[in-house]
């Protein structure tokens, strides 16, 4: 894993009125549909009186509107045990990100692009099916599988938390530091910054968890079990 600060939208609600929230979400979604779909975000529970059932309803409403809710902030202690079952991470109490100063870490690879900006992150929950194409300007995380005949592209990394059977093209605007990883590897093609490899006849690491990076213009595929 590499670390880096990623921009995450935090949603601060003023009330737990589900109808009001529903209206507000529909309105915003109509204004900017592309922005909404799969937007990774956190929900702040500060000053928001709610119980287990209320939290479940809030979370499912937000997810129904396509938001990729990945965690909560300022979670009251009595709700903390519920987070796992809602597939939410606890991002701590303060309204700042949990990692205090990731910018001062010295990762072995830069996570900045040429302009010095941190890359954006998109979390896609669901399978990418044959004939579908998913593109993101930044790092792309897929919680699901990528079918043969499907294509996922990102200007940054691509991480597939599932089987990668289709094509994954990372660093497509020429970032040689981009990475492709997946839990089960059975790809048709992997490319990083335009350097690609086809796997017509499979690969020694088929079905293993692998990480692919570019080393001296060569794709290097490393498995977790070797």
């Amino acid at each position: 894993m590499k670390t880096g600060m990623v921009p995450l939208t935090t949603i601060q609600l003023h009330s737990t009125d589900l109808n009001a929230l529903q209206d507000e979400l529909s309105r915003r979604k109509a204004e900017a549909p592309a922005l909404f779909a799969g937007l990774p975000c956190l929900l702040s529970l500060a000053d928001l009186p709610t119980d287990v059932a209320g939290l479940q309803q809030l979370v499912s409403l937000l997810r129904q509107h396509g938001l990729a809710l990945i965690g909560v902030r300022s979670c009251p202690a009595e709700l903390a045990t519920e987070l796992a079952s809602l597939q939410l991470a606890d991002f701590g109490q303060a309204s700042r990100p949990p990692r205090s100063k990731p910018a001062e870490e010295t990762p072995d690879k830069s996570t900045t692009d040429e302009s010095g900006c941190r890359r954006a992150v998109k979390v896609h929950e669901g399978n990418v099916r044959s004939g579908q194409q998913l593109y993101f300007d930044g790092d792309l995380y897929i919680i699901g599988m990528v079918s043969p005949g499907a294509e996922v592209l990102a200007t940054g990394d691509i991480h597939v938390l599932g089987v990668l059977r289709g094509k994954a093209l990372a660093g497509i605007k020429g970032s040689p530091d981009a990475i492709v990883s997946c839990v089960h590897f059975d790809a048709q093609l992997v490319a990083i910054a335009g350097h690609y490899q086809l796997f017509e006849n499979g690969h020694a690491l088929t079905n293993q968890s692998v990480l692919v990076r570019l080393d001296d213009d060569q794709l290097v595929i490393k498995g977790a079990e070797k």
Binding site: G126, V128, R129, G131
Partner: peptide, 13 residues
């Protein structure tokens, strides 16, 4: 199977 996968994608989009 491949075509079924495609049609599932269409159902979902």
């Amino acid at each position: 199977v491949r075509d079924s996968d495609r049609i599932i994608g269409i159902l979902q989009s």
